[in-house]
Write a protein that binds this DNA or RNA. Structure first.
Lengths: 153, 153
DNA sequence: CACTCTTCCTACCAACTAAGTAGGAATACT
DNA sequence: AGTATTCCTACTTAGTTGGTAGGAAGAGTG
């Protein structure tokens, strides 16, 4: 699996926004609406600002973020961190999780002795999906503060 | 996971060679050599010949193929198909299975709220490895002739 | 030896994608 | 009106991928 800079940045931005909601009123004065500005995300996670703006746009269009323009604008999650998975974010910015030469796994078009390969890609796809779809943003935030749990798989 | 044309071709070529060994033997031969030429692989699996040659070279350098030059030359597996996994082939031509922005997963270098992401990539990597390292070329050849189990999806 | 066949190896090319930049339009609040 | 922010499009740059070309090196045959 290749995790692109785009996907990586998207996850880090989502985590930073989720953390701001939890930490509650990050220094701003706590007026209730927890909006995080793109500029502050870019700084705290070291992401080029103009690049990040495009990513945030994708996340909003995918329905994961809510945005607000103007002086006190910014971004907020549309759902609680417990209900947003890593897979949601990955698919929002990166399309399909598994591709074979640019095509989705199930339509690779094999013939002859290679026919069995489709099953392999499907199995890989399922294995990846199981991991990323069962890990939520909340899980990752908790993992950060506590000791790292040994992989139970 | 992105499966490149290179990886895809490599697997198809390996399967075709494995199939030739099985089906072959060439009328009571038993000489064990059973060399397959690059040109015939290219034709039967519809792979550009010159591109395929570079791939076969990688597979040989990784110790998966044995080659022989000259008029009766060609390629053969160094081990029986039961002992070569999909993961072996993938790693031979593609390097690491999982990369985060070009780097191996464990050295992504996160900080702050994103620290938990490393665990996710490691889990994904493990899940992929489990699938590709437990599927052998022999498995795929057998699967081709039998009925394929319906995917529960 | 000359000849043929095949693998081996290097260099090269075209197209695409990823990563990042720039500049302005729309919107919201004071 | 003025300012701060998101929104959106177009562009640049660098690297990778997929593929090609042209031989050199080895292996067999007569």
């Amino acid at each position: 699996m290749y995790v692109s800079a785009r996907s990586d940045y998207a996850l880090r931005a989502m985590l930073a926004i989720a953390a701001a909601v939890r930490g509650g009123g990050g220094g701003g004065g706590g007026d209730g609406a927890e909006l995080v500005k793109a500029a502050s995300l870019a700084e705290v996670q070291e992401i080029p600002l103009s690049f990040l703006q495009g990513i945030l746009l994708d996340l909003r269009r995918a329905g994961l973020l809510h945005s607000h323009r103007g002086a006190e604008g910014g971004y907020a999650l549309t759902r609680p961190p417990e209900e947003i998975t890593v897979g949601d974010v990955l698919r929002a910015v990166g399309g399909s999780l598994t591709t074979v030469r640019g095509l989705p796994a199930e339509r690779a078009g094999y013939h002859g002795v290679a026919a069995g390969l489709t099953d392999v890609w499907l199995a890989v796809h399922g294995a990846i999906a199981t991991v990323v779809d069962s890990t939520t943003l909340a899980d990752l935030l908790d993992r950060e503060s506590t000791d790292r749990a040994p992989t139970a798989s």
